[in-house]
Design a protein around this nucleic acid. Structure first.
Lengths: 211, 211
DNA sequence: TGTACATCAGTGAACGCGCGTTCACTGATGTAC
DNA sequence: TGTACATCAGTGAACGCGCGTTCACTGATGTAC
């Protein structure tokens, strides 16, 4: 009556597949990558791969929903510290090339409503903007950012810069996303920070290391 | 010996096709749009369409190279006026939804090196960045922008914001690209403008109307 | 501890589908005389 | 002005290909007794 459950190594195998799928989708998008290509990367047949995931689409959603790499803002990041957090996400991603590359590439093709991940990305951008705006509002309420800052606009702008730089970098690896984003943060702080000692992101990072 | 040349209405027909193709590619990208879909939009068979363009790929390049919509910076735009120009591009594009939508959607899928438009976009971003950076440098040399502005970084950042906002808007039409970009320009000017009377893009537009 | 057997992991081949492209063909167009 | 005919515009059908998915099957694994 009851099923036996998976073999010992199955979990690890699924992880390998998801990881290879993430790399493929990040590079070529969903439509530009084939099941065979991903199956080859983990050394099995495409039929074998579909024993673990019932369809290519399900595999995509699995990749997108991976908790570990979901770049939601952690709950313990409050107020201005969110800028420092974003900065670190960019730094890490510059090395691992994981999340941001995947999200930008796939979200662009997911703009067409017929794309299987369309709803996912619509929801994701809504949530990401709201979460970031909330942190900025906190910072404003604490008096650390100027009162005339519009949290929602600022949040969208930050995300736009992140995505735009990533897109740019994919076409021209010479682009230094980390420095470029730091420069944007400096510009942002020099306009909106109320603390004269915090005019650059480096100064903020130094500060929040203590907090 | 000599060929007779096309019929009277052929030029117009080709334009119809290119226009329909641009709309299709802007919405679904190159891989996400089919020749049949474009042929249907102009009321002919896919074989008929390929009488005018020998392949889908050639049609894409035709669309991308269309002079009229190529959003290169015009030669008569100098110095700080470039910001006002970009602003107008965004405004126009918000209505026509032509160029920027197409370029963002297709450039994202063109990040994979095997994409037929890969080289086109690599070159395009290089040129766009350089052209914009040159205008900013002019403005700096004229003393209108602060000396510590890095023209290349600023140019990349501006393009990143444009592309990021467009991407965002495609996923959520509530996003007001025009206001959002204006806000970025305000922020930019309030940091880098040396003229205390030019702190917002509206002030600049008022100024440059005279110049 | 040993063994029977249900279930799991994975394969190779085939299926059906949509795609871009080609082909033989028909009717319209324009040019040479 | 009229006409023959080469070329152009466009069609319907078919081709070949790669794709995601399905299917019948084999061997490995783990569990119940």
């Amino acid at each position: 009556m009851t099923s036996r459950g998976p073999y010992a190594g199955t979990g690890k195998r699924r992880q390998q597949i998801v990881s290879a799928a993430r790399d493929a989708f990040a590079l070529g998008g969903f439509r530009g990558s084939s099941v065979k290509e991903i199956a080859d990367a983990v050394g099995m047949s495409n039929a074998g791969l579909l024993h673990h995931f019932s369809s290519k689409e399900e595999l995509l959603l699995e990749v997108l929903n991976l908790r570990e790499q979901s770049n939601d803002l952690p709950d313990d990041v409050h107020g201005l510290a969110v800028l420092d957090h974003l900065r670190k996400v960019v730094q890490v991603d510059s090395v691992t090339q994981g999340v941001v590359a995947l999200y930008v590439t796939v979200s662009a093709e997911a703009t067409s409503p017929s794309h299987p991940a369309h709803d996912f990305f619509v929801a994701r951008y809504r949530k990401a903007t709201a979460a970031l705006a909330r942190r900025l509002q906190e910072a404003r309420d604490e008096g650390k950012l100027r009162a005339d800052l519009n949290p929602e606009f600022a949040a969208r702008q930050l995300i736009a810069v992140l995505d735009g730089l990533q897109l740019h970098w994919l076409l021209n690896p010479d682009v230094d996303r980390v420095r470029e984003f730091d420069q944007y943060l400096d510009q942002f702080l020099s306009v909106f920070s109320t603390d004269e000692n915090i005019r650059t992101i480096d100064q903020l990072t130094g500060e929040s290391a203590i907090t």
